[in-house]
Simulated assay, not measured.
Amino acid sequence: MSEHSTSISRTTPHASMFSPSEGVAMERHTTLPSVTRTMPGNATVEGRLTSPVARVPESTTRCGGITVKGHTLKTFAYTTDAAVIRNTNANAILAVYPFTGEPIITQALLTVAQQPLFVGVGGGTTTGNRVIELAMVAEMQGAAGVVINAPAPAATVEAAMSAIDIPVIATVTTDDEVTEEKILAGAAIINVAAGRNTAAVVASIRAHHPETPILASGGASDESIIATIEAGADALTWTPPSAQQLQSQMMARYRGE
């Protein structure tokens, strides 16, 4: 019996059972982490499975950043994609989504995020006391801050600021009386999301509120990123490609396209 067992163990190709054939496209990785130093005091360590596909543009490093609880945040990845959140090198995550806010979604995102997570709590479709309740729960769950959508009145921003001790980010689309009221209501950070007019709106707010922390969308090009920084933005939101887009690009490479 023992001889039969020994014979099987010697002839069964365990080691090669899961070996890819030469014709199968495989991701190749080094066996050790990559360590580089570009200047004194600036060393870089990359894991052997590290992926560079969700990295923020280099031009975003020009902004000064917003310091929240001792952490200087220059880039906020605008996404709720768990896989992207886990792999991006943005300093923080801005998780705002077009559905009614739910604590279970916040908890799921906190599970994968390696950076401070700023989560949307409504202000558009979701209004009133529910916004404040969601903000309080987000703080208890461990969110670094909450984001209130542009349609919310200044009273909602003020109520949230009174209820929680983490920063309240108030989103605005233009520099008008409502934006002024939100700043005076105590919004910790103003998030400018004005599309192609973002740089102009940032410059307008900065002109009469030089002390207000401003987060703004950087756009899709280095030119728009630099313009937004020069207009006065302290930090930038950046929309990374989705996991589906990245997967499509990877499959195209596998097919040799």
Rank of each mutant, 00 (worst) to 15 (best):
T228G: 03
S221Q: 03
P167G: 06
I229H: 00
V172L: 04
A155H: 04
V45H: 05
D222S: 12
C63D: 00
E27L: 15
A138Q: 00
A163Y: 07
L49M: 14
R28F: 07
G64E: 06
A231E: 06
A185H: 05
E211V: 08
I190G: 00
Y78D: 13
W238H: 07
A108E: 06
A194L: 02
A95F: 04
A243D: 06
I166S: 02
F118P: 00
N197T: 03
H14I: 06
A203Q: 08
V201W: 03
S21C: 12
N87W: 09
D81C: 06
L236F: 07
N87I: 04
S204T: 02
V56M: 10
A160P: 00
Q107D: 09
G218F: 06
N129R: 11
G47W: 04
V56E: 05
I66F: 04
M161C: 15
P13S: 13
M1T: 07
A92I: 09
V172M: 05
T12G: 06
T79V: 07
A77Q: 06
I132T: 11
G142H: 04
V147A: 13
T212P: 01
H209N: 10
Y97P: 00
G232T: 03
T156S: 11
F76W: 11
T72N: 15
T228I: 03
R255L: 11
N42G: 07
E58L: 12
V147N: 02
I226S: 10
A90C: 08
T239Y: 07
A185G: 05
I169L: 15
I8E: 14
P213R: 10
L134Y: 03
S221E: 12
V119E: 08
N89P: 02
L236V: 08
L32I: 09
T36W: 09
D176S: 12
V146F: 13
L215W: 03
S19I: 04
T60E: 04
M136E: 05
A235D: 08
T126N: 02
E58K: 07
S19R: 15
A144S: 15
D176C: 14
V84Y: 01
P151K: 06
A15T: 12
W238M: 12
F76Q: 06
L236G: 03
Q247T: 13
A54D: 00
Q141A: 15
I169M: 15
I85A: 02
Q115L: 12
E46V: 12
P153R: 14
C63R: 02
V172P: 00
V45N: 04
F118L: 14
M250D: 12
M161I: 13
Q245S: 14
L246V: 02
A154R: 09
I164Y: 01
T31H: 15
T72G: 06
A231R: 11
L110E: 02
I166D: 01
G145S: 06
A152M: 10
E257R: 13
H14N: 09
A233N: 01
I226T: 09
P213F: 09
A220P: 00
I93A: 10
P241Y: 09
A160F: 08
F118G: 11
P57T: 10
T60G: 05
S34G: 13
I226L: 10
S224H: 08
M161K: 15
A143D: 03
P98S: 07
A252V: 00
K74G: 10
A108Y: 06
T75Y: 02
P151I: 12
I169W: 05
A235Q: 11
A233I: 04
V137S: 10
R62C: 13
E211D: 14
H4T: 13
E102Y: 07
T127V: 15
T198A: 08
T44H: 13
